[in-house]
Design a protein around this nucleic acid. Sequence first.
DNA 1: GTGACTGCAAACGCTTTGCAATTGA
DNA 2: TCAATTGCAAAGCGTTTGCAGTCAC
Lengths: 135, 135
Amino acid sequence: MGCREVLKQNGYRITPQRSLIVDVLHDAEKHITPEEIHKQVSARFPEVNKSTIYRTLEVLKKLDLVDETDLGGNKLYYHHAEHGHHHHLICQNCGRTIEIEEEAFAPLKKILVTRYGFDPDIRHLAIFGRCVNCD
Amino acid sequence: MGCREVLKQNGYRITPQRSLIVDVLHDAEKHITPEEIHKQVSARFPEVNKSTIYRTLEVLKKLDLVDETDLGGNKLYYHHAEHGHHHHLICQNCGRTIEIEEEAFAPLKKILVTRYGFDPDIRHLAIFGRCVNCD
DNA sequence: GTGACTGCAAACGCTTTGCAATTGA
DNA sequence: TCAATTGCAAAGCGTTTGCAGTCAC
């Protein structure tokens, strides 16, 4: 079921603005900031206000249609939930980001559950360090 | 070697403000925000400006005397480097934070190195989820 | 004495909010 | 029709910065 159906079924309206925001998120290959979304949406639908972007992202987040990721800066990144839960290795030297699969966290997850009684929600994770090119 | 010696050796001056900030960080049992530091320092040294807190933290960070942690909110947390590198499990339901030891990350670290050629700097990590009390 | 440091006030970047006007269902 | 949604402008929040005065060394 697409984003639009989910929105409708939850009593939200499909406005041109929302429609475009969903499209941009869908087409984005990587995580994307509200700023970038705004820029892209503006190109096709002038005068969209940034607050509309924020409010729409809030709705989409609530409906689990997008994932919100804190990559350590002062801004947040978003990506279409269907693109799957992935994580990021961020090289502090060259800035490169490497996507890794959830599977890599299985051992850690197990330790947290068994040893700390904590059920981690490992969907929004960024790990800093140095990549192989920068050794 | 204490913070004061390190500061001196690197050509920084020991001002009353810096001295107090170092004390507060040293006495803090947990990670602490610039805001909290400011409040505590102000109690003993009125009229300390918040920018002094920020500037001092920047210096201490550069000298590896404090660790900076992004706990996912919009603010940063700091703790005295001697308190060791620990990580946080943050319950998204009750807000409780649990400290875990670096050791728990050994398996993950290994995977990242061997499989992704990435040397993680796992010093500033926060993991969200649900704690055992909130199941 | 002199450069490092401080307080102040203003600005910053990202995000949120109140409100009146608009619009989708 | 009419509540949901939008644009606008302003404020919020943590943080940074330029500058003139002050202070540690």
